[in-house]
């Protein structure tokens, strides 16, 4: 009997070690992928930064690869405008929809709405881009003038694009708020609206913030939809009806033409590196906000 128990335990141990090894390998693969990508981006961007100079690269508004001018200031500004615009459009709609779905939506309607947000999330970005080019861009051109390919067009399309992320993450965090908050507020005489907006929403704050950050990440990294509708001009925009070039659009526009190992290629990878740093900063900011709010 005792012998058998020991054997069983050893067998169990063997499985345990194997699984442990598997977990470690998985984690290592993930970390290795991240490190290799980081190393690749930063090593490859060194030649351009050396040739052009970091300051010149970041703050010059002249992008003219044929003449050896590499300045991405206009694109940094472009990315910021587009991101801000998309959040202005996407966050209020997404946030209010999430509240509606979590607290107001009648059951039969919810059964239709929920799959619809999932469908929206599953549409490929190139389709969003084409939709923007054929529908949003002409609409803006006819009603507001200008090229149509503009910050506004990008903001609208990207704002719609981040809705599913914001809705589903915010809704889940609202649903995770204990029922007692809501009941307690009602018991104290608050109306339904007050109970939701003044007790449940603050309680779900970190989840809602996370949803916005996830949306922000998607907007700033979005490429295929943006490149078709942002106009890609390398100059500072005067209004939201002017076109801009985002960092991602710059990389995808010119990557297929560069010579291997040229300064131009390196400059495009350096553009990606700047984007990478942006996302790092955002992630850090979020960590800080969450820490201080706790």
């Amino acid at each position: 009997m005792a012998e058998e128990a020991v054997r069983k335990k050893v067998k169990g141990d063997w499985k345990e070690t194997a699984m442990k090894a598997l977990f470690i390998v998985a984690a290592a693969a993930f970390i290795a992928a991240l490190l290799v990508i980081c190393a690749f981006i930063f090593v490859q961007s060194v030649p351009a930064l050396k040739e052009v100079g970091v300051f010149e690269f970041l703050f010059s508004d002249k992008w003219n690869p044929g003449k050896g001018e590499f300045g991405i200031a206009t694109m940094i500004v472009g990315s910021c405008y587009v991101t801000a615009g998309a959040l202005v459009i996407g966050v209020p709609i997404g946030f209010l929809t999430a509240i509606f779905m979590a607290r107001y939506c009648p059951r039969p309607l919810y059964r239709v709405l929920k799959p619809m947000t999932n469908i929206l999330a599953g549409i490929p970005s190139i389709v969003y881009g084409y939709f923007g080019l054929r529908v949003i861009v002409p609409f803006i051109r006819d009603n507001f003038g200008g090229y149509g390919q503009s910050i506004l067009a990008c903001s609208i399309v990207l704002g719609v694009m981040i809705l599913p992320t914001i809705i589903s993450v915010s809704e889940n965090s609202l649903r995770a708020v204990p029922k007692s908050y809501y009941e307690g507020a009602l018991a104290l005489g608050a109306t339904k609206e007050r109970a939701i907006f003044c007790t449940e929403v603050p309680a779900a704050k970190s989840g809602i913030m996370t949803s916005i950050i996830l949306g922000l990440g998607r907007v700033i990294g979005e490429t295929m939809a943006v490149v078709m509708i942002c106009g890609n001009q390398t100059r500072f925009p005067d209004s939201i009806l002017d076109g801009v070039r985002t960092l991602t659009a710059n990389v995808v526009l010119e990557m297929s033409y560069v010579e291997m190992g040229s300064v131009h290629e390196s400059a495009l990878i350096a553009t990606a590196a700047v984007l990478f740093v942006f996302i790092l900063i955002i992630t850090l900011l979020i960590a800080l906000i969450r820490k201080s709010s706790r």
Binding site: L133, Y147, V227, M228, N232, Q233, R235, G243, V252
Partner: peptide
């Protein structure tokens, strides 16, 4: 710099 840049013949045609 003010011309809109299209990333393909198809986009030029559509625009």
């Amino acid at each position: 710099d003010n011309a809109a840049v299209c990333n393909g013949t198809n986009v030029v045609l559509t625009s």
